[in-house]
């Protein structure tokens, strides 16, 4: 992959002011730099509270950073005013971490999916409805859900509506914050495969925030590891997994139990929780 990056983030800094005496200011993102190229997935990983969602929100300019540049296709978004940003938003779409909170409770699902197109003045009443059903199909949602409101959907259905909505305006960059965490393994695979296929066909760039390191290993091209608001290590996926340099990365990786299948068929150990060790080795042995 050559040429200028799709997204080039330089020295991004996010500080929350803290209110009066109640709380101190929080430096959530501290001079973070990374890039995402067309057709590439960069995974942003790190423990809870390290600043991933804050990074996502400022890349999208949903919150203005306190410092740094966010260059999207060469244009520094931090210098643009809201009307200028509006023109670029279709190309740069979010999928939020909280599936219910990210959808307006009053909008019906078909309107939630159509909203980005409407806002951009690109809604075509003739072809629009068919486009909405096509998007529902893509994320494996039944058409009958289109007339419901978010609280009448299951968690995983809501999350897929968020993805359909992000895809509606044919973006070139997706900022995906835990996009498949509420999905069962089979539908999760289906949605990830869809994202991979779209990336391969259309050259989409993904900033992919995910704490499921096995999934990251499988789908990301590169990884940036974040701790306390800073990027402590970044590199190709294989390199990060085989020879992590930072002590923090090593600690993150050891929290994931090994992939190896046990040699015998011991019963599943009950005492020690292995929260992210996929029990694929448990399922298929008689």
């Amino acid at each position: 992959m050559t040429g200028a990056p799709l997204l080039d983030v330089r020295e991004l800094t996010v500080r929350y002011p803290g209110r009066r005496r109640r709380s101190q200011p929080v430096l959530a993102v501290d001079r973070v730099s990374f890039e995402v190229r067309a057709g590439e997935t960069l995974a942003l990983v790190g423990e809870s509270g390290c600043g991933k969602s804050s990074t996502a929100a400022t890349v999208l300019q949903l919150r203005r950073p306190q410092g740094g540049e966010v260059r999207f296709e060469g244009v520094d978004l931090t210098t643009l005013d809201e009307p200028a940003l509006r023109g670029l938003r279709p190309a740069l779409q979010p999928v939020f971490q909280d599936p219910y909170g990210s959808l307006s409770p009053r909008l019906r699902i078909r309107d939630a999916i159509a909203e980005p197109l409407r806002v951009q003045g690109r809604w075509d009443p003739v072809t629009g409805p068919a486009r909405v059903t096509e998007l529902l199909d893509l994320v494996q949602l039944d058409h009958s859900l289109a007339d419901r409101r978010p609280h009448e959907l299951s968690g995983g259905q809501c999350q897929r509506v968020g993805i359909a909505r992000a895809l509606a305006s044919e973006p070139r960059l997706l900022v995906l914050d835990e996009p498949v965490s509420a999905l069962d393994p089979s539908i999760r695979a289906g949605v990830m495969n869809l994202l991979i296929d779209l990336q391969d066909e259309l050259g989409l760039g993904y900033l992919f925030i995910c704490h499921d390191l096995r999934l990251v290993h499988q789908v990301a091209h590169r990884i940036a590891v974040m701790q306390h608001g800073r990027i402590v290590e970044s590199g190709d996926t294989d390199q990060i997994f085989t020879s992590p340099a930072a002590a923090y990365t090593q600690a993150l990786l050891t929290a994931v139990p090994p992939l190896a299948t046990p040699a015998d068929d011991r019963p599943v150990p009950r005492a020690a929780p292995t929260p992210s060790g996929l029990p694929h080795d448990l399922g298929l042995r008689p």
Partner: peptide, 22 residues
């Protein structure tokens, strides 16, 4: 149940990024 557990099986490394689904 067999399919649910099978969809967790990682694909052989490096051959594909796609994941197994029912």
């Amino acid at each position: 149940a067999v399919g649910l557990l099978a969809s967790l099986k990682p694909m052989p490394a490096a051959t594909t990024r796609r994941l197994p689904a029912i």
